[in-house]
């Protein structure tokens, strides 16, 4: 699931992105400092799957951006907790490089995923995926989810 998620994004299959989440899932990108200070209005905050569909539709049809892609490298997943209802809390380090249409490559973001995962008919899905970027800086724009 961890690997499939980043492949879907890195290969530009953005329509698959919402399918990794439960209907009521929360997805949010935030900076380490924002997170530490309890500042809850991170970047790209979706509090249900419909909002994720909207993000992808706007990425394809509405917002204007210079073409670019990501390449994620993820570390091993560490299970932090497993509660009685079957919710798994886990974290995974990531590194995300952005390649622009002209070939320029830049380290776009590095940080960790902090996840709460549930099983829906044996399929693991994110109920919450918090992307905690080590930097609070974003270069130019954030349109493709990390």
């Amino acid at each position: 699931m961890m690997v499939e998620y980043v492949h879907a994004i890195d290969e530009g299959e953005y329509e698959r992105w919402p399918t990794f989440f439960t209907e009521d899932a929360v997805y949010q990108v935030t900076g380490r400092d924002n997170h530490a200070r309890g500042w809850v209005a991170g970047m790209m905050l979706c509090d249900n799957r419909d909002m994720m569909l909207d993000r992808i539709y706007t990425l394809r049809q509405v917002n204007l951006w210079e073409p670019h892609t990501y390449r994620h490298v993820i570390g091993p997943t560490q299970i932090l907790a497993l509660d009685a209802t079957g919710v798994v809390t886990a974290q995974t380090n990531y590194l995300c490089v952005r390649t622009m249409h002209d070939g320029e490559q830049k380290l776009f973001s590095t940080g960790r995923y902090l996840d709460r995962i549930v099983f829906e008919a044996d399929v693991p899905r994110f109920r919450e995926r918090l992307v905690i970027s080590d930097s609070n800086r974003i270069d130019t724009l954030l349109v493709i989810p990390i």
Binding site: G31, R37, S135, N136, D139, T140
Partner: peptide, 11 residues
């Protein structure tokens, strides 16, 4: 009350 901060680098 601050709820978020974004450091946006613009080219």
């Amino acid at each position: 009350q601050i709820i978020g901060r974004y450091n946006h680098i613009m080219p």
